[in-house]
Amino acid sequence: MSGEAGALPLAAPAVPRPRAWLVGVVIFCALALAPLAVPFVGGNYLLLIGSRFMILAIAALSLDLLIGYGGLVSFGHAAFIGIGAYATGILAVHGFTEFYIAIPVAMLAGALFALVTGAVAIRTRGVYFIMITLAFAQMAFYVMGSLSAYGGDDGLTLPSRSLVFGSAALKSETVFFYAVLATLIIVTLALRRLVASRFGRVLQGLRQNRQRMEAMGYSAQGFQLTAYVIAGAIGALAGFLLANSTEFVSPAFMTWQRSGDLIIMVIIGGGGTLYGALVGALAFLSLEEGLSHVTDHWKLIFGPLLVLFVIAAPGGIARWLGWRAHE
């Protein structure tokens, strides 16, 4: 077959799933309107559930940057949530309750943990990377559990939610809900720009064909570590919100099962699209919520569902994600 015969007509660059952003708009609009339903259904419970969904969605979005775009299967993402939450809690205990202190400190803590552990993990690939990220997250879990000054295994109760320039506005569940929504939208838009940027292209290129990228002169580790640090900082931001949502932090925020849950969210929504992570978080929490109404032992149903999903996905998860090349 000659090149000319098979030529495609000149078309706009093929963006995978071109209407994906519509999903985002629909979800954001629905969320923005949700508090209006509070008087009729669920009451504050609706807001709590909604906030929880959005917080996990923020964490899932940042994990999608690693898995979906970078091909870096990090199995320790819950650690960043925990670190952000603990940073917020510990600051609050010592009287630093302003959000403009807590957010940067939490994100820096997440970024720093990502930098140090990522520097080790990024040097390895494949199975090693999965195991090392898991191991470091478990380390963070144990360390937090051993901080007896901050509650140890029992966790730590926050004196109050973060203040906004001295005001306790976040006490209102409605205000807090909208604050989380605003954060979610900002994170989504920022990541959208990031993945389309020069950096984003390099990150995706490294996933598709690392050898080719290195032959062009790109050093993989620097780019991947940077992505890991960014994702860690955003994960910690989700932790800041989670600590405020529950007014409590504990090592349970950062169990390895939680890291697994986050991967599931990214994958079932279809990784590498960002909006997929939103859908995935929504689907996961709906399943959890729905199944746990059916039975307390909802994992007896969810576990096999997950196994079936993986086995049934034709060509495997990678194909499901639209990855055509795979190392």
């Binding site: 099962q257 994958i267 576990g303 997950l306 993986v310 086995i311 495997g316």
Partner: peptide
């Protein structure tokens, strides 16, 4: 069924088995 799949598949499927068996 999973040997030929990549690590992400193996990870998710075996995670599902853990969820099930711990609960069982």
């Amino acid at each position: 069924r999973l040997y030929a799949r990549d690590h992400l598949d193996q990870l998710l499927a075996t995670f599902g088995i853990i969820l099930f068996l711990n609960e069982a």
